[in-house]
Nucleic acid binder design. Structure first.
Lengths: 314, 314
DNA sequence: AAAAATCCTGTAATTAAATTTCAGTCGTCT
DNA sequence: AGACGACTGAAATTTAATTACAGGATTTTT
């Protein structure tokens, strides 16, 4: 019961976070493999103790299908799958192991929301294309000017945050969350400039257009978005990131955490790439902030002491 | 080469921490088993990937001796041993917090950054004052108008994000990241209005002043900050949150993740409190966003279908 | 001091488990 | 309509792990 139209999935690299990996590739799995995924998801803990025959029976498929499933999620063998799953579960448990047991509704709510957030971060780490991120770091570190585009509920604030992160490194950076401004700014870019576009859906029309304009003027477009989307197609350097959204419209999207984590990594990478220059710029920013009246823990005439201050970041 | 005088070890209960268990029973092991223990201890990580034959060869003993070793340390089988060892190692790794930033490898860098992010979220959950958050939810849900204040690197973008979260629920909300605007807006507040102030340091002078102005006009001030700070003292409802900052100035502060998680919880709580009203407002926002041209998965004249769309959030 | 007892250890056999091979089937494209 | 391509499970094969068993060593007992 299948056809040849599906392009057949490629071999994935070993997963860091098996749980999020399973969720992410689920759509690409064959029917039998999806049954295995469902059986595993029903009780992850149990899956680490089952044999291949038991899991096959539970899923209602043949044993080879289980092996094939393991390969599809990036594991070398069934045994490898079990080890990785056990590791993932332990990590998840360690991160969200709160000693507290929440009796009240608020606590339950918080646990649910924050678990989603932590999962998004783990998912980001699992699927991070480090090669692409490396290129992005190089591009930003070597650019004359950086424009950041983001739009809508999920990405506008992340674009602003990204701006601040790079601004602190002394880079000439601007963030645009408005379509017109994005396009106008994009038209002024040149080769040697960089664009950072953030969008979970990858289908924000204005952002896609602005990116296309930017690349047409020779700028390097770094896009952080879902692969296979218009935005991903338009970018020069694509950092693919697939974060599942919740059907419940009342729940804030967890993709923001993933995007922020990637941007933080990018910013840290750029900071190290810039080396002394970035360090000096950051020192100056902190020193200036301190001098205009934000309280700092240890007022001092020695700028390096200001730099050491823990709370000067806001 | 053995004698009958050893009292013979009893069956141990399943170990929680295999590494310490091995050390503890080592003295009671037989010579061949001790060789296995040494081989395992030489590289725990590798032991989780080795087969019984490989481990036997590495230890210089027979395969049954490996099985016997596993039983001696409290595991049911070699497979059980491997799973437990992997689990133990992961727990150990999770508690070994990487303060060091690895410059050489992008993956290491990402892992470091994202671990910090996940830890911040966990820390937020650990110390969350659910009673205070509950009061904050009530205050926001019952307020006529909400002002959000945040300033500087850490909190400005979070304030913007918080604005979007509440805006989607149909609340009249505004965010101010500038000191003058904060004070000006605060002076127009009345009883029945609410303020949400976000600051990790709790010492941003303009935010503290604006909060004081707001409360003097009768508004309810919700502050998300470190306890014992000027801002915490100025607030009506204090949600205490202490997130340690990194000494390394090049690393973005993880407190943003914690604040965003708390705000998400707050927004979700408000959404539930508002019930149908919030739902309807959110539906309208989404519908409007869709109708002005953002691509949506399933274009439809039925508003509820739009609401179901997964990617309309940006 | 010699014999018995006990237990440790490895070889070999057995059993269990996982993977590969292969053929059938179904859907899609030409 | 025919052919190709992919998915699936049955069966075979290979690999891995456990059990059974016997040799050998050391200490205790006689």
């Amino acid at each position: 019961m299948a056809g040849p139209r599906s392009p057949r999935r490629e071999i994935d690299e070993p997963p860091i976070d098996l749980v999020s990996r399973i969720e992410r590739v689920e759509a690409r799995l064959s029917p039998a493999e999806r049954l295995v995924a469902a059986a595993v998801q029903q009780d992850y803990e149990a899956a680490t103790r089952l044999t291949i025959a038991e899991l096959a029976e539970k899923a209602g498929v043949s044993q080879p299908s289980v092996t094939r499933f393991c390969r599809s999620v990036g594991c070398a063998s069934f045994g490898d799958f079990k080890i990785r799953l056990a590791t993932t579960l332990t990590v998840a448990a360690a991160y969200l192991k709160t000693d507290r047991v929440f009796a009240d509704d608020i606590g339950q709510l918080a646990q649910s929301v924050m678990m989603r957030a932590a999962n998004a971060v783990r998912a980001a780490l699992d699927q991070l294309d480090t090669a692409a991120l490396g290129k992005a770091i190089d591009a930003v570190a070597g650019s004359r000017r950086v424009d950041i585009y983001g739009q809508g509920g999920g990405s506008a604030a992340m674009a602003e945050d990204a701006k601040l992160r790079l601004f602190r490194l002394g880079l000439p950076v601007a963030a645009y969350v408005d379509g017109h401004q994005q396009r106008m700014s994009a038209a002024t870019l040149q080769p040697g400039d960089a664009v950072l576009a953030i969008s979970n859906s990858g289908s924000s029309r204005t952002v896609v257009e602005a990116v296309k304009i930017a690349t047409s003027f020779g700028a390097t477009a770094i896009v952080l978005t879902r692969p296979g989307t218009p935005l991903a197609d338009a970018g020069t350097i694509v950092i693919p990131m697939t974060i599942a959204e919740d059907d419940n419209v009342l729940v804030p999207t967890p993709s923001r955490y993933a995007h922020m984590a990637v941007v933080d990594t990018l910013a840290t990478g750029v900071a190290e790439r810039l080396g002394a220059r970035g360090r000096e710029a950051l020192r100056r920013v902190r020193y200036t902030v301190a001098s205009i009246g934000i309280a700092i823990p240890t007022p001092s005439t020695d700028p390096s002491a200001v730099m050491q201050g823990r709370d000067t970041h806001e």
